[in-house]
Each structure stands twice: as structure tokens, then as C-alpha cells.
Design a protein around this nucleic acid. Sequence first.
DNA 1: AAATCATTTCGATGTTTGTCGAAATATCTG
DNA 2: CAGATATTTCGACAAACATCGAAATGATTT
Lengths: 114, 114
Amino acid sequence: MESETVVRALGALAQEHRLALFRLLVQAGPEGLAAGAIAEALGVPASSLSFHLAQLTNAGLIAQRRDGRSLIYSADYGAMTALLGFLMENCCSGAVCAPAVPCDTKDKTERTAA
Amino acid sequence: MESETVVRALGALAQEHRLALFRLLVQAGPEGLAAGAIAEALGVPASSLSFHLAQLTNAGLIAQRRDGRSLIYSADYGAMTALLGFLMENCCSGAVCAPAVPCDTKDKTERTAA
DNA sequence: AAATCATTTCGATGTTTGTCGAAATATCTG
DNA sequence: CAGATATTTCGACAAACATCGAAATGATTT
């Protein structure tokens, strides 16, 4: 992962509304959520939300697809995995930073590769 | 970890110079590096660097200590661990985002807790 | 095609960031 | 204390960011 990509991804997440937005999409799963639903959930005016959605999209963290007149946004898990991978590899002293992530995760098979 | 703290940490890392700076400090280890050495390594004028050091310090990602007339900066691994922990817990769909971090790390004892 | 619904784009505006030289502060040395 | 060294603070300025209503675009329904 290029460091410029990392900077953009970090920048996209470095904002209250957008962090909440991304968390919401992650929670929503691959199905995603319509822009309107997100706006309501976050209590942000439509035009403001649109700006933030664009930032996240531009950073490659979320994907957009159309369903009827709604635009559905969903988190790009691959991008997030790549970002975390970069941080753990480059911004940690070996295993020192690795948080308490249990290694006995049941299904380690499914892993949306970057 | 409060989401506001996360936003500040992400914002601090979301800049080419600062990301490079933090990586440099991580690589340097607990010993840290003097501001002057960092400025030279990054090729950034002293006053600009000072600004970036302040941002990272403010975000709690690095620590400062004085040694003679030099100010030594070092990475705060605990903060980074906390940040990664937050991201993995809140911005990932369970284990989906967990990057390929080998579970057979020799010394899983030493872990600078947040 | 007209009305309607969902969302984005466009202005305008205030705030924050990034940059860097010059001046100020802190520490050591003689 | 005077001089040298290491770093920060100040001031000024351009660029990017965040916000939000109003207008424009895209898609559906009748």
C-alpha cells in the first residue's frame, strides 16, 4: 500500500462525522445503506453528508451502487484490511502494537483480501 | 478509547510528513530521536517540523523528553496499540479486517498496554 | 411528460492546515 | 555573563476542509 493512499484513507477517517459514518457502514454489512438512511442516522443535512461520502469514496474506503433512485453505500473491507496491515507493519515495533486480537477466531477462512 | 481521541490520532497521521515522522520514530525505538536529527532525516525546515511534532504530541502519539539542549521525541506504542484496537473493534466486520498477522509471534508476553 | 423522490453539485462563508523565515526561549560552554 | 547550539513560537499567507441552503441531476410513477 502506497503511503499516499494511506494518508488519504487516514484523512478520510479523521473526522467525527466520517468516522461515525464508516462505522455505521461496517456495522451495516455488505448490504450497505442508502444515503438518506445514513443522513437520518447521523443527523447530518443531505448536502453535508454528500460531501463526506465523496471523501470516503475518494479515499477508496467505501463503494457506491445504485438501487432505483437510491444510492447505496457500503464499506470496502479490503481497503480497511490493507490500511490496518500497513499500520501494523510500518507503524509498530514488530508485534508490540498488535492489539489483543484473539487468535482463536473460529472462521479464519473468510478473509476479504485487499 | 474515545472517538474524539481516535479522530485526533488519525488526523495526526494523515499527513505525509507526519506519517513518515511517526514511522521514523517507531523504527528508532524507545530511544527516540532529537528534533534536529528528524528534521535532517525528513528534509523539513525546523519550524515546519516543530509544527508537525506538536500535532503528533497533541494527539498523544509521541512523547517528548529533554536531553541537554536537545528535545528527544519517541513513539508512544501504547497509543498506537489503542488506536489499532479501536479500528479493529469498531471499523471491521468482526475478524474480516484482521490483516495477516501471524499468531505464532514468539514473545507475546511484552505488550505495552494502552 | 409532469410530478415526485433521492441525492448531488454549486455558491458562499468561516475554520483549520501547512509552510517557512525571523525572532524568541532554553540549555550548555568558556 | 557572553557566545554558540537546539528548538519553538510568532506572523503572514495560501490552500484545503466543513457546513448548509438552493438549484440541478437521475430515476420512478402515473
